[in-house]
Amino acid sequence: MRPPLPPFTVQTAIEKVRLAEDAWNGQDPEKVSLAYTEDSIWRNRDLFINGRAEIVSFLTAKWRREIQYRLIKGLFAFSDNRIAVRYAYEFHDRTGQWYRAYGNENWEFSESGLMQRRHASINNLPISARERKFRWLMGRRPDDYPGLSELGL
């Protein structure tokens, strides 16, 4: 069981989104993968990922490429066992070029609260270091740090 469980309310959907954000900001592929069913199906940009082993492999490679990764997610909509989020994250590559990625995800959960489907559409925008908005220390975003709307995103 991975609470909060469906069917979602406004409060439990917001909690589920924040838990996902926190896990991804922790950048531990094995730990993150435990929030997904064993046979979870993903579409991430142009990649199709199936199951926890592929999730771990994908996230390991992602966080090697995306240095100083920081993410903010926000609830967009929800129903029974589905949640839609919008998000942005910032990172730099090995050359030092900063990016802000903007995306939307559609999530579907099993009765046990594990995500069984994740469909992500994401676009990267090159930014300068001065344009960065996500400046907390690595790891969990502080509770008092602004969300996407407050940051004008």
Rank of each mutant, 00 (worst) to 15 (best):
M1C: 10
R2P: 02
P3Q: 14
P4A: 02
L5S: 12
L5P: 05
P6I: 01
A13Q: 13
I14L: 12
I14A: 14
E15N: 13
K16R: 15
K16Y: 11
V17C: 05
V17G: 01
E21L: 10
D22A: 13
D22S: 13
A23P: 00
A23Y: 02
W24H: 09
N25H: 07
E30L: 13
K31M: 11
K31H: 10
K31G: 02
V32Y: 03
S33K: 12
L34F: 08
L34H: 12
A35N: 12
A35E: 14
Y36L: 03
T37S: 14
S40Q: 06
I41V: 06
I41Q: 06
R43Q: 14
N44Q: 14
N44C: 08
N44A: 04
D46F: 08
D46H: 08
L47F: 05
F48V: 06
I49W: 00
G51F: 09
G51A: 07
R52K: 13
A53H: 12
A53L: 11
A53F: 10
A53M: 07
F58D: 00
A61D: 10
K62T: 08
K62G: 00
W63K: 01
E66L: 15
I67T: 00
Q68H: 13
Y69V: 07
R70T: 02
R70L: 08
R70E: 04
K73D: 02
F76W: 11
F78Q: 02
F78P: 00
S79V: 01
N81R: 07
R82T: 09
R82D: 07
I83E: 04
V85Y: 13
R86H: 15
Y87Q: 07
Y87P: 00
Y89S: 01
E90G: 03
D93V: 02
D93C: 01
T95D: 05
G96N: 05
G96Q: 10
G96C: 08
W98L: 07
Y99F: 15
R100M: 14
R100G: 06
Y102P: 00
Y102W: 08
W107F: 13
F109K: 03
S112M: 15
M115R: 13
R118E: 13
R118S: 10
H119L: 04
A120K: 02
N123D: 11
S128C: 14
R130A: 06
E131P: 00
E131H: 03
E131Y: 07
R135A: 06
G139F: 09
G139D: 06
G139L: 04
R140Y: 00
P142S: 13
D143M: 10
P146Y: 07
G147M: 07
G147C: 08
L148V: 04
S149T: 15
E150G: 08
